[in-house]
């Protein structure tokens, strides 16, 4: 019962951050600011959702799998944000 409640609250919080990331993507003025919103907010959203689902796991293996998924997504977010920013910077410099 308590575990279910934790799952509801945490996954809902995660969704709020995903919405925030999308709102930022739509509202922020330029590519780089939008990248801020996507990487940071989505990373946190996934973290909260993973944490929420963690309360439903039955084995340590499932818990480890969730942690691994979050870690890999985190690694990818940090790396891809840099790559997109670098590419966008090169494009804007070419246009100038």
């Amino acid at each position: 019962m308590m575990a279910d409640l934790a799952t509801y609250v945490l996954t809902a919080l995660g969704l709020v951050f995903f919405v925030a990331g999308t709102v930022g993507l739509l509202r922020f003025p330029d590519t780089f600011s939008r990248l801020h919103a996507l990487t940071k907010a989505d990373n946190l959203g996934l973290g909260f959702i993973a944490l929420g689902i963690a309360f439903q796991t039955e084995t340590w293996a499932q818990l480890a799998m969730l942690a691994l998924i979050w870690a890999l997504a985190l690694l990818a977010a940090g790396t891809v944000a840099q790559l997109v920013a670098r590419a966008a910077l090169a494009t804007t410099q070419e246009e100038e």
Partner: peptide, 21 residues
């Protein structure tokens, strides 16, 4: 990263959207 996500979420939701890139 918690602070980072909250910071950017607040900015995205705030009507004034205080940004100075």
């Amino acid at each position: 990263s918690l602070k980072g996500g909250v910071d950017v979420a607040l900015r995205a939701f705030s009507p004034r959207m205080r940004l100075n890139p």
